[in-house]
Nucleic acid binder design. Sequence first.
DNA 1: TCTGGGGTCCTAGGACCC
DNA 2: TCTGGGGTCCTAGGACCC
Length: 410
Amino acid sequence: MRTYFHVDMDAFFVSVEELYEPSLVGKPVVVGGRPDERGVVSAASYAARKFGVHSAMPLRTAYKLCPQAIFVDGHPERYREYSHKVFDVLREFSPLVEMASIDEAYLDMTGTERLHGPPLRAAHLLHGRMKQATGLNCSVGIASSRLVAKISSDQAKPNGVLWVVPGSEAAFLAPLDVRKVPGVGKVTEANLNARGIRKVEDLARLDEGFLEQKFGKWGLALAGKARGLDAGGWFDGEIGEDEGPKSISHEHTFSRDTADAGQIEATLARLCEMVGRRLREHGLHARTVQLKLRYSDFSTITRAHSVERGTQVDTELFEEARELFRRNWKAGRAVRLIGVHASSWVEGGEQMDLLNEARHEKWEQALAAVDRLRTRFGESAVSLAAGMKGKFRERTHENPAGLPGKKDRS
DNA sequence: TCTGGGGTCCTAGGACCC
DNA sequence: TCTGGGGTCCTAGGACCC
C-alpha cells in the first residue's frame, strides 16, 4: 500500500499577483488581460468566481459578468519563480516529487511516517510550511493512488486537506459526477451522459469489456479510473522522473484577423525565434516543424514537415515554417492565429557537408550571442531581418499606431 | 469584435518495408 | 492472378489538462 499526496495551489496566478500587489486581496481579480482584448481568463479570484467567472472563459464574457473586477496581465516569469519555491517546499517532505504542472504536484509519501508522522499530520505540516515559505495557500489530497489523491485535493479546495482512507476509495468516488475524473472532459461527459452514465458509481457498475468496446483503449482506462486505479493514461510511470519536453511551440492570435502576408510572415519569424531560443536552451534539435493556421471562422489546420537532420536555428525553422505557410495558406483568407510547433528531437550536427557545416556553425555562434543580448535587454532587442519585413508591429493598446517602437529597432 | 497559449496523449490512414 | 500480415514512420486532427 502506497501513500500519495496531490498538492494543488489555490487560485495560483491570482495569489501570486496578490503577493506583488496586496491591494488585490479579497477583491474580484481576473488574470489574463484587459477585458476588451481577445483572450480568455487564466485565473479568477474566489471573489470573481462568485459572479460566475472561471478560467478559460473569454475576457469579454468575464467583463459582462463582473465589470467591477480588476483585470490584470499574467506574469509567467513570476509564476515559474513561485513554482520553483513550491517545489522546494515539497522536497522537504519527500524526495519523490513530480510537478504535474506549474501549480500542482504529486508526492510519493510512502514510508515517510517516521519522519513526518501519519499522513494527515504530514499534510497539515506541509500546508502550514507552504504558507510560511511562499505566502500561498494550497489544498492537499491524500490517497493510495495518484488518481484518487488528485480528485480528493479538488474536493478539499480551497485551502483544505482531505484524506481518503484506504478501503474507502469506492465510497468516496461513487457519488461524484463523471466529469470529476481527470481525463473526462466535455465530450466524454456528454457521451457518457447520453448513455445514462452520470456518476462515477454508474461508471463503476459497467463491464470493462463494454467500455473497451465503446471507447477503445480509453474505455479500459476509464473502467480502472472508476475504481480509483492509476493504471493507464497520465498516471503511468514513477514519480519524480523528468524527461524534458516532447515538443516546443509558440502561437499568436492577432488582435484583428489579417490577410496581410507581410504581417503574418513577420509574426511567423518572431515565433520561430522564440521556438529556436527555447530549443537552444534545452539543447534540442527538432526534426519536425509544424505550422498551425486558424482562420476567422475558427477552422484550424496544421501542416507538418519532417527533415532528416534536426535544427535549432531560427532561420532554418523559419524557412520550413514559411514554406508550409506559403503552400497552405489560401491567399486573401483572413488569419486569426498562427503557430509554430517543433518536435521529434534528434542529436544535432550529424551528416552535413563541410560548407553547410560551416554556415550552420556560424549561425549557432551568432544565435548564442543573440540569446545573450536578449537575456540582457529583453526579448525584442534583436530580431530576424525577416521579422521586420512586415514594417510594422501589430497594433496593441501599448502601441495603438502599430509602429515599431524604440525596443523594436535593432 | 465570443472562443489564449503551452503542452500530452490517442487515433487513424497511407507509405513503406520485410 | 490473387491477395498475407506485422511493424514503423509520417501526417492530421481531436480530446484533454492547467
